[in-house]
Nucleic acid binder design. Structure first.
Lengths: 116, 116
DNA sequence: AGGAAACATATCTTGTTGGTTATATGCCTG
DNA sequence: CAGGCATATAACCAACAAGATATGTTTCCT
């Protein structure tokens, strides 16, 4: 199963997240947004779902998808040491952010790959 | 040419950056670090170089590679809206970070920092 | 100058993946 | 209950990317 970084490697997948970033949307709207067949979108949604980055809610025949930001923290964490490179002595602030990020939802969902 | 996100999609490439994250290293050491043929590593280095994420310095027959963190800011920027999702009402801080990131290497002084 | 070390580039092979076109499933409506 | 939406899944294909091996190219050493 794909890991967060690989999932985001695909532009369409980032695009989907962007479309979902301000609230849930049905698949149909996503299909409009990306210019691409519906099955293709569903496939991307599957990948995102399996990576825990979106979740869906059923509304009659439609599925409303929304972002699950949790896994993105892995990216944020990986980024930390490099962020320090372009913003020197930001460690305190960073630590602060880190603490704020302590836990938004219990939901769980870990994946391997924790580099640093 | 590959974009930052795609470049980072590949685990070996992240690994390389991690190995370089605390200073420059010759290719040979990277080859040790990843367990992989030297040409494979050189290929990854090429991709990273073309994406502006590393640069090299010549030392006799060796090439010393080091990180160029700049392009990573694109990731950081993309992350911003989602970061807000797990760290509610952090916008002020974020804006602050954003401004700090405005320039390559400030060295020490102050920049227009009117946050607070 | 000859040879080895360190790295880059070329070429080839193979697996994965992102897309497409069917087709199945579930739910609502008339 | 038949038909039409909305979405998921299946099967297939073309493109690509990540390895490996083989071969340059440059620089150092003796």
């Amino acid at each position: 199963m794909m890991m967060v970084f690989e999932v985001l490697g695909e532009p369409s997948r980032r695009h989907i997240l962007d479309l979902l970033s301000d609230g849930e949307r049905p698949v149909g709207e996503l299909v409009e947004g990306l210019q691409m067949s519906q099955p293709a979108v569903s496939k991307h949604l599957r990948v995102l779902r399996e990576a825990g980055m979106v979740e869906s809610r059923i509304d009659a025949q439609r599925r409303l998808y929304r972002v699950r930001p949790d896994p993105l923290r892995e990216i944020d964490d990986w980024l930390a040491p490099y962020r320090r490179m372009w913003a020197p002595s930001l460690d305190a602030l960073e630590a602060h952010l880190g603490r704020m990020s302590a836990e938004p939802i219990p939901a769980a969902g870990e994946r391997g790959d924790r580099t640093r």
